[in-house]
Design a protein around this nucleic acid. Sequence first.
RNA 1: GGAAGCGUGGCAGAGCGGCCGAAUGCACCCGCCUUGAAAGCGGGAGACGGGCAACCGUCCGGGGGUUCAAAUCCCUCCGCUUCCGCCA
Length: 421
Amino acid sequence: MIDLKAVRENPEAVRASQRARGEDSSVVDALLAADERRRSAVSRADTLRGEQKAFGKQVGRARGEEREALLVRGKELAAEVKAAEAEQHAADAELTELHRAVPNVVHPDAPAGGEDDYVVVKHVGTPREFDFEPLDHLDLGTRLGAIDVERGAKVGGSRFYFLTGVGAQLELALLNMAAAQATAAGFTLMITPTLVRPEIMAGTGFLGAHADEIYRLRDDDLYLVGTSEVPLAGYHADEIVDLGAEHARRYAGWSSCYRREAGSYGRDTRGIIRVHQFNKVEMFSYVRPEDAEAEHLRLLAWEEEMLAKIEVPYRVIDTAAGDLGTSAARKFDCEAWVPTQAAYRELTSTSNCTTFQARRLNIRYRDENGKPQIAATLNGTLATTRWIVAILENHQQADGSVRVPEALVPFVGTEVFVPRS
RNA sequence: GGAAGCGUGGCAGAGCGGCCGAAUGCACCCGCCUUGAAAGCGGGAGACGGGCAACCGUCCGGGGGUUCAAAUCCCUCCGCUUCCGCCA
């Protein structure tokens, strides 16, 4: 949820944010009206309750006839209070519904527009020139005995796969390398639940416009997470978190991730680029709001540190407002070069959710005066199954073997993956 | 799956339907004492909403009900614990 006080003080900023996202800016006025209605309803109910409370004490002291008379008036008052409270609840519910529907206010420097309106921040590395026809990751993976999509489809349906042999080793190596880097950087490593309760899923902002992306277990009223961002955000829900001397709490979540890919029929149907289930090591930070932007750059730097270790060319983009998702105020994606597609594809994504998630999940910290304040949350990717695509394709050799990037060698235990004859 | 119990402030833990926003202890903050600290003594301090403020209201897991009045009684949902059974 966005900060209602900020909406009152500067509604135009929120309207501008909505326009940048390509969404309706009139919700701001609806929000302000509902806020006004709620506040007057609260004040009416407060006054009546105050009267009733004082009156109740008189009744307690009164005796005999006097008491009987007071009881009559007491009943009237009780009815009035009940009516006023009903009004208050209605006004409250109306406001909350509107409030929850408004996405986070975008950062003023984020580019306006939709998916294609991103701004390229920088390029790192140069796509390699091949003196042979490069194979795509699925051909390579199949020959290496690393990926089996046919049996994946047999067992789980389309967009499922088996990682086999060296494929499984490579994924574990990647995730372990991410976990090692995160741990060295001071993150607390976490293995999280991947099924979460509705409040947690809603709190992270995933049940809004993109709810059809999420697997839901109706029989148990649980959701399968699309990222460990969800359980890691929920971890401190309803808490006043001690941010410590560093004014930051950093967690690295290792989990499987599940996505329905509902709106992507026909896209990336080949290989393991876009799948229903994958594994990921995700960074998650709780910080003070004034530190959020600096933390965002730190997360980006840690992502780039990982990308450097796998030695693939990539670019960093500043995602456009319309492509931010509900919770983010700003998002940077790192996209690796995929030779057979002659395109950059997303390998990491880091979002600054400012106080949006924390306000929904009621996550606070104590400021220097000891007063509770809403925290800010951020997240960013350290490694996912998809990284295998970039590694295989960029480091393939003419004979179908694949060179293992140096940093990964200790984790994989070999310097080259060789095709099975 | 069956049975029982529990859910109160940062934590622990009291609380006859009105005098309970709630004892007490620990932790915390400020003084005093001390070369410094600990101990000891004195004082302070919950969260949320509204208001410039004095202040007012709300909050004892969530929701509903009984009552003039609910932390306290009833219903329901959620969570946790223990015992039995089942599975691993």
